[in-house]
């Protein structure tokens, strides 16, 4: 599968329009992150994709043609549910053994998967003794057991420690490199940002924005924060620099100890660098901070 496209996905629960004409496409080798406030429709979209919610309208297409959400389709998907709590009476190995049988995967994959998610030592222990992070890693092992073409992850970072996060990042990277697809719903924008290719922001069941992190930053039109380190430079010269920038009049300027903070639009950064170069020896260091994805997200959602 080189491409999957969802068009016009609409779901209504009574008076609630959970999804309203949502369209989304994903290419092979790409990872898409679904973000949005609670009730935005992220989980509902995922559930439609998995056949767990019957949409009022939806069209799914791949490069091979129309896709029906049937058993053949489900063979191609791996799923990690949010906050999954497996039966505590079984061991991790027994649980994976069941999913291996159900997926028609060789039993030898069970040990490989336990090793892959760092649970080889705990594989024979009852799940009741697992920490939350270990359970989440076990869920990840279930999701990737059959090497699905599309990996669907619902809040995959929840409960994971650094070791678990490393496993998750390596799985996502592996899926992208192998030309498979990943769709992840999350609230952890900052954590996920560097591991995914595209972000789809949902609100009220509609797509608010969709693109790369860079696309979203651009569309949010938030200023970059530029820190100018003045170190031991004479006060008079620093004031002269500040005065020049105020005269330029395109950004907000603030003195913070021996540093100067300037907030300017992304496309004005170079101009600022040129201004400061007119004051040789005053600026000893320069650091550019892009707006974080959390700030971009808040701006897109209209959160103060």
């Amino acid at each position: 599968m080189r491409r999957l496209q969802a068009r016009g996905v609409s779901v209504r629960f009574g008076s609630l329009q959970a999804l309203d004409d949502v369209s989304l496409s994903i290419e092979a080798g790409r990872a898409v992150m679904l973000v949005g406030p609670n009730g935005a429709g992220k989980s509902t979209f995922i559930k439609v994709l998995l056949g767990l919610v019957r949409p009022d309208h939806a069209v799914f297409e791949s490069d091979a043609g129309r896709v029906s959400i049937d058993n053949a389709w489900k063979e191609r998907i791996g799923y990690l549910p949010e906050a999954v709590a497996f039966s505590e009476n079984l061991s991790g190995r027994q649980l994976l053994g069941f999913f291996a049988s159900a997926r028609g995967v060789a039993r030898s994959r069970v040990d490989v998967m336990l090793e892959r998610v760092g649970l080889a030592a705990a594989g024979r222990r009852a799940i009741r003794g697992y920490s939350r992070g270990m359970r989440q890693r076990l869920g990840l092992a279930v999701a990737i057991l059959s090497t699905p073409e599309l990996l669907v992850l619902d809040e995959p970072t929840a409960g994971l420690d650094q070791e678990g996060l490393s496993v998750l990042w390596s799985v996502i990277a592996e899926w992208r490199e192998a030309g498979r697809m990943v769709i992840a719903s999350t609230h952890d924008l900052a954590l996920m940002e560097r591991r995914i290719d595209e972000i789809c922001v949902l609100r009220g069941g509609r797509v608010l924005a969709h693109g790369t992190a860079e696309d979203l930053r651009r569309s949010a039109e938030l200023p970059h924060r530029i820190w100018l380190e003045t170190g031991q430079s004479p006060e008079a010269k620093v004031e002269l620099l500040c005065a020049a920038m105020r005269k330029w009049g395109k950004g907000r300027i603030e003195r913070v100890g021996d540093r100067v903070l300037v907030e300017v639009a992304a496309d004005e950064t170079l101009e600022l660098v040129e201004i400061q170069s007119g004051f040789p020896g005053v600026v000893q260091g320069l650091r550019v901070e892009e707006p974080t994805l959390d700030v971009v997200y808040d701006k897109l959602l209209g959160v103060a």
Binding site: L50, L52, N71, K74, A83, V84
Partner: peptide, 14 residues
């Protein structure tokens, strides 16, 4: 309640 029903039904089964 354990959030595994969805996982079960995401398998190729009716």
């Amino acid at each position: 309640e354990r959030n595994t029903l969805g996982l079960l039904l995401s398998l190729p089964v009716g």
